[in-house]
Amino acid sequence: MCRITKEINELRRPGLLVEAAAQGTALYERRRDLRRMLRVAIPATARAALEKLLPIEAELEKRRREGATNYCLPRHVDILTALLAEARSFRVG
């Protein structure tokens, strides 16, 4: 099992957060959404996107757990949505 797959499989997040992200995958458009979320050129592959998304999500999760004032729930849902959609592409591709 590769490192990325292992990291994704080990994610443990609140059910409501995961459900919101899962619902968002129906509206996910890679080109539009990754550009907005990552604020860089769109990664060529799902693997490259996941390598960028995983540390962002980890930081958001850290802020959520700490109750940080700079935690942004909508951004966390967006990032998790992209992570789920890209993970699906990664596993298929």
Rank of each mutant, 00 (worst) to 15 (best):
R75L: 12
L38V: 06
A82R: 01
R88T: 14
C72M: 13
T81P: 05
N70F: 10
I56G: 06
T45H: 08
L50Q: 02
E66G: 04
V92W: 12
I79P: 02
Y28R: 03
R36Q: 11
V77D: 03
R39Q: 03
I79A: 09
L34P: 10
Q23Y: 06
T81R: 11
L84C: 05
D33W: 05
L73S: 13
I56Y: 01
I79K: 09
A48H: 09
R30V: 01
T25G: 00
V40R: 15
F90A: 01
A21S: 14
A26Y: 13
A22Y: 07
I4G: 01
I4F: 00
R32K: 05
D78S: 11
T25R: 07
L54F: 03
P55K: 10
I56F: 00
L11K: 02
R13T: 04
E66F: 04
A68Q: 14
K62N: 15
L17D: 07
R31L: 14
G67S: 10
R39W: 00
R65Q: 13
Y71P: 04
E29G: 04
D78T: 04
E19V: 08
E57S: 02
R47W: 06
L54T: 05
T69K: 14
L54G: 05
P14H: 06
R75H: 09
T25M: 13
K62F: 15
I8V: 08
R30S: 01
T45I: 03
L53C: 02
G93A: 11
P43Q: 04
C2L: 05
R64V: 10
P14R: 07
G67E: 08
L50C: 00
P14S: 07
S89W: 04
L80Q: 01
A22W: 03
E86I: 08
R47H: 02
C72Y: 10
A46E: 09
G93V: 06
P74S: 13
A85G: 03
L80Y: 00
A48S: 09
A44E: 14
I56N: 04
A82Y: 00
T81V: 10
L34H: 13
L16Q: 12
L54I: 13
L38K: 15
R12Y: 02
L73Y: 13
L84H: 09
R63H: 10
